[in-house]
Design a protein around this nucleic acid. Structure first.
Lengths: 249, 249
DNA sequence: CGCCCACCATGATCTAGATCAAAGAATATT
DNA sequence: AATATTCTTTGATCTAGATCATGGTGGGCG
């Protein structure tokens, strides 16, 4: 959910084992190194000790809303969606997690949302109790975590503005812009931007229906704002155009 | 934005001076005491030193989006709204702050939203730099702040579900329920619940128009779910009813 | 006391986006 | 290669809530 600047950005290309197999996670250790940039060698060694990586297929539920929150996750590769449901099945996706993002943090004892993989995903697991112990020992990590939560909060407020007040077209443009910006922060190319999630997922993220998402994409394509490329890529024709469209300016 | 459980809950009834007058804030010191429950006497003394209280009239802008974030605020009495604007003036209120709530925290150097008073308000000010220094010294405060941010994040996700997927009726019912719950957590009576903000503010919080808010209130009144009392109070007839209506169950 | 002005309610109408329906297009399965 | 399955696009229609318009109401102030 939170995006962090990493000194490096390539993901672990370890041809990892099928779902649920577990092994130590060296890539994530490096990530964590950056997260806790100021940590001492000893502290890093201790952190690395508790890290494990797991690989999941698309459509796998990592954890469900209400389950006891025993693990903090970091995305090593792939995309994860987190969402909340209403009793009748209406769904709101509250975030897409990309490599480098953390999720599963909870101050209560249970998860407040469901987390599900969108693509094949590698996750680095931080057992909650051991993580908390580390936090007590190393205030710098605490601080970093707080700053991550604050960033997420700011993003959440942007999303509220989007959900409450933007039109369908503005929502789609904002979404593409967001993906592009996040790609840039992770050191990937921002244009064309990779859109790994389905129309239905985009709809549930933006408070729309799949039909409206689809129609809006064709509309943007027709008016030469974007073009749709092979492999779920979207080419943005004019970034400034898109920026204006995203804010209704 | 965040709600915290306080050992005590009555607000400072000090007949304070007109807008912008400043004096030491003893009530807030007590609040902060609870926030940092585990702090030592010396730590508390240091905190009390940096606190100041200011009183504002309704409709006063405490700070605007984009201004340098130099102060963290705690609501001593009254109600504050925080919102974001689109270039053409569309507004999304992202939260109402009640006594005990903090706002104005920013990891960046500028505020991400505008904060404006709804009722007469007393605010306790925490200068940012001195606050940060204290946080460095006392990790427990850092921890408490993190937990507050996490709670706010969970609330933000609930609000996204509301904005993206709920009907007007469900939104209004959820809103009343939220006010009631927050009143309860602050040790006030939960029914009838005090609704200090205008229809327009409620509309901008729920992603509706004033007309729809008004219509929905009368609709709920007609169907005997609530009744509107004197002094901006709303009597909830059946709490369970309301809870079902809020989730579309 | 009564006038004003901002808030609130309610009616009439409109429309963005939902819903319903069905035909392509892509991907997986046998 | 043929077939099932799921995702996407597009069309036709409907509707919740927006917009436009107007009158009611209550609290502040001369």
């Amino acid at each position: 959910m939170s995006t962090i600047d990493f000194a490096y950005s390539r993901d672990a290309n370890t041809k990892a084992d099928p779902a649920a197999e577990i092994h130590p996670c060296s890539a994530c250790t490096v990530r964590t190194l950056t997260v806790c940039a100021a940590l001492e060698a000893e502290e890093l060694r201790r952190l690395a000790e508790i890290l494990q990586t797991t690989r999941f297929d698309p459509g796998h539920t990592v954890f469900g809303e209400g389950e006891p929150a025993e693990t903090l996750y970091n995305v090593t590769s792939g995309t994860v969606k987190v969402y909340k449901l209403l009793p009748d099945g209406r769904r709101q996706i509250t975030g897409f997690l990309l490599p480098g993002d953390f999720f599963g943090l909870s101050v209560n004892d249970s998860y407040a949302y469901t987390a599900e993989t969108v693509t094949p995903v590698s996750l680095c697991r931080f057992p909650r109790r051991r993580m908390e112990a580390l936090l007590d020992e190393f205030p710098k990590m605490q601080r970093r975590l707080f700053s991550m939560a604050s960033n997420e909060l700011a993003a959440a407020q942007d999303q509220m503005l989007l959900l409450g007040r933007k039109t369908a077209k503005e929502k789609i443009c904002s979404f593409l812009l967001l993906l592009s910006q996040r790609a840039s922060r992770r050191g990937h190319k921002t244009n064309p931007v990779h859109v790994p999630m389905s129309r239905a997922d985009i709809a549930d993220y933006l408070g729309l229906t799949t039909e409206t998402v689809s129609r809006t994409f064709t509309q943007l394509k027709t008016s030469r704002v974007i073009s749709l490329l092979e492999g779920n890529k979207v080419q943005i024709q004019d970034m400034d155009d898109l920026l204006d469209l995203a804010e209704g300016a």
